[in-house]
Simulated scan of single mutants.
Amino acid sequence: STNLTDPRPFNLMFRTTIGAVSSDDDPTALAYLRPETAQGIFINFKNVLDTSRRKLPFGIAQIGKAFRNEVTPGNFIFRTREFEQMEIEYFCRPEDAPRIHQEWLDSYDQWIQGLGISSENLKHYEQTKEELAHYSERTVDILYRFFPEREDEAKQWDELMGIANRTDYDLRVHSKKPEDAEGKRINPDSTEDLSYFDTATNERFYPYIIEPSTGVNRTLLAVMMDAYSERTNEKGETRVILKLKPEMAPIKVAVLPLAKNKPEIVEMARRLKKELQPSMRAVYDDTGGIGKLYARQDEIGTPFCVTVDHESLEDGAVTVRDRDTWNQERVSVDKLKAFLCERL
């Protein structure tokens, strides 16, 4: 009863032409937008090695745009045709690759959780031999629970990032010397040898590569999903709270005057914001009632709000409100910066 078309190939790379007057059918002008950042690192391996004189192990990191002609883009920024990618190509001796691969995996677990993403929403997926890319000896995907609304728990997860042991495949195929079983050059177009000479052992070989590959868009989406929460206030209104880790919050403190028609309160609030600014990202806002101002800062993840009120003019203290608990604490102005720095 299904109405399926015949199978046909899909090209997941974006085609373009180089030259303002080149025609679409000119094969000499044909080019493709890069689907990943890694290949540029591989072909520049010798330049980096010659100029930096690094010894194994060492890595080259790159962040930039990648383009994929996805068949089914969607789910907000989960899958897009243009996205930001972060990749590290970490070069090492072949015998050290399994250990280093595991070390990178453990380090990325810590890094991801350091962004505020709960370990309950993370898990590893070890690719089977049938699933491994042709160049990979081992690949582990770190999955995030991107689709918690799905009833089937197995379908709630999708890839956040992957860490692959790419062996020596990339440097070999980009080099001019390697030959196939018939004695023919694997890459007849290459003019460089991307091997590595170890002066300590007098060995020349192609290093293995450990590659952590991360999508910035998906990482941002995971951080936002984990931070998103809702809470009902005493009026029965549902408020959104973005519980970002303080390190991740773009604004650390909002300084708010309780009465914007009182010049003394406004002046004190603006002065406090100016004093806090060198130590933390602070903003001043008087464009609404105090309740709306609190709600606005909760929605953008500001950890603390500092309110200057009528009593502040008399006792030299302000009210500090915590984003996550909504608890309020009276703090002396001369101790305010230390109070906030300790909690940010």
Rank of each mutant, 00 (worst) to 15 (best):
I290S: 03
I117F: 01
A31S: 15
R34D: 03
F76Q: 07
R8H: 09
T214G: 01
T37M: 11
L56E: 10
A317E: 15
S195Q: 06
I265K: 02
R68Q: 08
P9V: 00
N187S: 14
F58V: 11
A31K: 08
M224K: 01
E179Y: 00
M13H: 08
E84Q: 14
I251Y: 04
L56I: 06
K123S: 03
G288Q: 10
T2E: 15
G183Y: 02
L4N: 13
L49M: 10
N47F: 11
N44K: 08
T16F: 05
L220A: 13
I300L: 12
A338N: 11
H174E: 03
A38P: 02
K245R: 08
E70I: 02
T5A: 11
T16Y: 06
A254C: 12
Y108E: 09
Q85G: 05
F91Y: 15
L33N: 05
L56R: 07
G215A: 11
G236I: 11
E159L: 05
P303L: 04
P246I: 00
T167E: 01
W104R: 00
N233F: 08
M161E: 04
Q127Y: 08
M13L: 13
P278K: 11
D96A: 15
Q102R: 12
I186R: 14
D298H: 03
R323F: 05
A133S: 13
D193E: 12
N327C: 02
W104D: 00
D334C: 02
A164Y: 02
V331E: 10
D193G: 07
R281D: 02
M225L: 13
T167K: 15
T302P: 10
I77N: 02
N44T: 09
V306M: 13
F67L: 07
F78K: 05
N165M: 02
M224I: 08
V140T: 06
K274G: 13
D226V: 00
E149R: 07
Y144R: 09
A61G: 12
T319C: 10
N11F: 02
S175H: 11
F78P: 00
D180P: 06
A133Q: 11
R321F: 06
W157K: 05
V140P: 00
Q39M: 09
T5M: 11
T28I: 04
A61N: 12
I290T: 12
I265N: 00
I117P: 02
P73H: 09
P57V: 02
G64W: 08
L33S: 07
C305D: 01
I300F: 11
V48E: 03
D180S: 05
K46I: 07
P178E: 14
